[in-house]
Every structure is written in structure tokens, then in C-alpha cells.
């Protein structure tokens, strides 16, 4: 089973919910932090990293001896990552590759009539994996996260590598990035259930509406977790009721939780009674009560 934790708005508590869920349920868990632009679940789970590897995307390299500057590569590139300049007089032109615009789709090399393009690997990020036992001896949580290199623009290739760690004999919990664009879609698609974490503020609700559109488009069963549920207004509750969206959990504001968070500690370490609540949350999803 794959449960993804997403939100529209950032900072609503995705990682908090994902981490506490992973540590509370008495199951083997595969925890995937897919927020590769700013992964932070490791701060709370403190995994012992055992495996580390780089992530590459294939980018074109042009053999200027074979190239006739026909412009086919430029024509098929959907991202403007290749420029072909035909020279005016001598016939010798130039081809420019912009690796930062390249999505690594391979069209240019596939369609090149001269076979003048080969793909070379460009490192865009890294994957780290390990177990959380040292910090949480009672939890069987395998941890994987991706980290996009600084200056790189495209998160999905790294997220796809993280998602290759989905295994069937563990409950997979995916901590998704905020927003509603490609990185989010890449992270949450193929999930069995998506938890949308929000806060009862105008910003939280605005972005929740966008996130709901996304999960509905992807036909994912989903439910809402309202964090800091006693602050803000009641518009989020009203909206969920009207749209028939299950509010699966409410986490009222509690100073102990905020203090623990600021020290890199989980809710269940600060307020142990929450473990039961997260177990109930999981049971409800697993039994299909909200699908």
C-alpha cells in the first residue's frame, strides 16, 4: 500500500504527518521523502544512511564532425534546449546545448538523421537510504530521500529514482513536495491513498482547493488532515463538508508540539497519546473507510 502525504500550501505539516504516521503504525514502513528540493524528514527520523548514489539524466552531446546543422534536433526538442545556428557564408554552423533546459527525453538523439548525437550522463542529484533504528529502536522504517543538486531546475528525474524504492512488502509513505506542479504529480501518482494536509487559513484553503483538483484529476482516493485546527476560521471544515471530503484527522495547536518540532522531535515523542491517533488514521485508510 502506498500512502502519499501532500498539500497545496507549504508549511502545513506534511512532513510532520508523514513522519508520525510512519513511526506510529506497527508495520514495516518504507518512507520516501520526495521533496527533493528541500528534503527535511531526515531531521526527525535521523536515519543511519547506508546507501548513497548519484542520479543522472541523459543530455545530448553533439559530434560536430557528423552534424549537418539540419535543425531536426531543435525541431523535436519541446524545451528549447538545443539551438542550431546555420552559418551564412561558409556552411559551418554551430549547435548549442543548454543542459539546464534539457529534460533528458532523448528525442534529439533518436531523430538525428546523421546519428551525430549521443547521450551523456549529467548528475542532477543524489539518493540516500538507510534505517531509522538507531533513533527509533521499535520502528522498522526504511528511509529513502532524494536531493536535487543546487542550481538544478528539474526535480522529477530525482523523484522518479526515489520512487523506484517502493516495495510491496512494506507500507510506503511518501512525503510529497508542496504545490501542485510536476514534482507533486510525480510524487503522488500511483498512490493508493493521498492525505492532504492543510491549515484553516485563507491561504491554506485556497491551496487545498488546488490540491483537491489535482487528486481528483489523478482519481486518487483522498482525505484531509487539518493541522492547527483550532486556529484560523471554519471555512475549511465547511468546504470539506460541502464537497463531501472526509476530514480524517484534526491536530489542534499545542505548544509542546511546536517546541518539539523546533528541536527536530516528532509529535509522538512530545505527546505520546498521538500514537494511537495516527494508528487510527492508518487503520481507517487501510480498511478503506475513506475511499
Amino acid at each position: 500500500m502506498i500512502i502519499s502525504v501532500a498539500s497545496g500550501k507549504g508549511g502545513t505539516g506534511k512532513t510532520t504527518v508523514a513522519v508520525n504516521l510512519a513511526l506510529s503504525i506497527r508495520e514495516k514502513v518504507q518512507f520516501l521523502d520526495c521533496d527533493v528540493e528541500e528534503p527535511n524528514a531526515h531531521i526527525f527520523l535521523k536515519p543511519a544512511i547506508e546507501e548513497k548514489r548519484q542520479v543522472f539524466i541523459p543530455v545530448p552531446e553533439i559530434d560536430e564532425l557528423k552534424c549537418t546543422y539540419c535543425g531536426k534536433c531543435r525541431e523535436v526538442c519541446a524545451y528549447g534546449a538545443v539551438a542550431v545556428i546555420k552559418s551564412v557564408d561558409s556552411g559551418k554552423g554551430s549547435v548549442l546545448v543548454f543542459p539546464n533546459l534539457c529534460h533528458g527525453c532523448g528525442s534529439c538523439s533518436y531523430f538525428c538523421p546523421q546519428q551525430a548525437i549521443k547521450e551523456v550522463n549529467k548528475e542532477v542529484g543524489e539518493i540516500e537510504a538507510g534505517y531509522v533504528q538507531p533513533a527509533f529502536p521499535n520502528a522498522d522504517v526504511r528511509f529513502v530521500h532524494g536531493r536535487l543538486n543546487i542550481g538544478e531546475a528539474m526535480a522529477p528525474p530525482v523523484i522518479r529514482e526515489v520512487k523506484k524504492y517502493v516495495v510491496r512488502d512494506r507500507i510506503t509513505i511518501i512525503d510529497a513536495p508542496p504545490g501542485t506542479s510536476c514534482p507533486v504529480i510525480t510524487s503522488i501518482k500511483d498512490s493508493d491513498f493521498c492525505l492532504l494536509v492543510t491549515e484553516p487559513t485563507p491561504f491554506g484553503l485556497n491551496d487545498l482547493l488546488l490540491a483537491v483538483e489535482v487528486v481528483r484529476k489523478l482519481s486518487l482516493p483522498f482525505g484531509v488532515v487539518i493541522n492547527r485546527s483550532d486556529l484560523g476560521d471554519d471555512k475549511t471544515e465547511t468546504y470539506c463538508q460541502k464537497e463531501d471530503i472526509p476530514v480524517i484527522m484534526r491536530i489542534p495547536f499545542q505548544k509542546e508540539i511546536a517546541v518539539a518540532y523546533s528541536h527536530g522531535k516528532t509529535i509522538i515523542e512530545a505527546v505520546p497519546s498521538y500514537q494511537v491517533k495516527f494508528q487510527e488514521l492508518y487503520r481507517g485508510i487501510a480498511e478503506g473507510n475513506f475511499s
Binding site: G80, A83, L101
Partner: peptide, 19 residues
């Protein structure tokens, strides 16, 4: 034609001008 391009507008416009 590159005014609303998702990305790579500079590269595309550069080629247009070069032509």
C-alpha cells in the same frame, strides 16, 4: 511566437533572429 513559451524562450528567439 516564443512570448508564452514554458522555457527556453531566449534560445528560441535567438535562433529566430539568427535566421
Amino acid at each position: 511566437s516564443n512570448m508564452e513559451a514554458m522555457g527556453g524562450a531566449g534560445v528560441q528567439s535567438g535562433q529566430l533572429v539568427a535566421q
